[in-house]
Design a protein around this nucleic acid. Structure first.
Lengths: 123, 123
DNA sequence: TTATAATATTCATTGTATTGAATATGATTG
DNA sequence: CAATCATATTCAATACAATGAATATTATAA
């Protein structure tokens, strides 16, 4: 019925790669934390409650995929999203699955990074 | 520093499930074909050039995840998308990865389903 | 009621991702 | 320069997904 009309699926590789990265609750949670701007690792540890090395592993995946970037400031390493358009993707699925977009901030947790300490002293 | 503040990641399960389904070039290609409305299996076979059983396998994954639905009409089984909002997700990644949204129709392939035969005779 | 067309399922194999535990790195302070 | 803090990496064990090959199912037509 047809001879070798196979569509090269390479063009979809970029998409599938992104999806692969997002196939993971911890990674999505991390990205959600970064919605509000850059955050240090200990911050994520405090918010998510995962072991440090586990978070680092997931950060590595996100970093190697180019989704996030890091910046060292003294002891802490701050991560930020490379391209905020990633949130359009997250929002689209959240909309698809019918749950409201989640705002991660304003939770009662404590983190010792300078960023959070400063905030706490103000409040 | 913190005790048991672990965020339940169950709430992200729906999202990750959808992403998991989309982590696959053939499945994305199938969904793209269904952008223009329902299509039969042989149609996808003609367009994508995969073996029939392979396409059926991927259709089964999409179907079991609830992303698509089928309808039998004589010999052919027509598939359609359950919730078109899925395309907002696909569009978002495509936008994120910087490629234009792909329109699958208008290709020079032949498929023997009544739908296509009728079209061909008109053209 | 058998042959055939369209589609689906099963199963075995291989490949790839996840996770935990342990350990390493690299700034920074004293 | 040794101790410490925040973070990263490695490795091994397990779980999960992808693919091919073969076969099954179901509706239709003769």
């Amino acid at each position: 019925m047809i001879e070798e009309q196979k569509i090269k699926n390479d063009p979809l590789e970029a998409e599938t790669q992104v999806f692969k990265i997002l196939t993971h609750p911890a990674r999505i949670a991390i990205l959600n934390i970064l919605r509000d701007g850059e955050r240090c690792v200990c911050h994520m540890e405090a918010y998510l409650g995962y072991r440090q090395s586990y978070i680092s592993q997931q950060l590595a995946v996100l970093r190697e995929a180019g989704l996030i970037q890091d910046r060292r400031d003294g002891w802490n390493i701050y991560y930020r999203v490379t391209n905020p358009n990633i949130y359009a993707v997250l929002d689209a699925v959240q909309n698809f699955t019918g749950r409201p977009v989640e705002s991660s901030d304003g939770r009662v947790v404590s983190c010792n990074c300078p960023h959070c300490i400063a905030k706490e002293n103000k409040g």
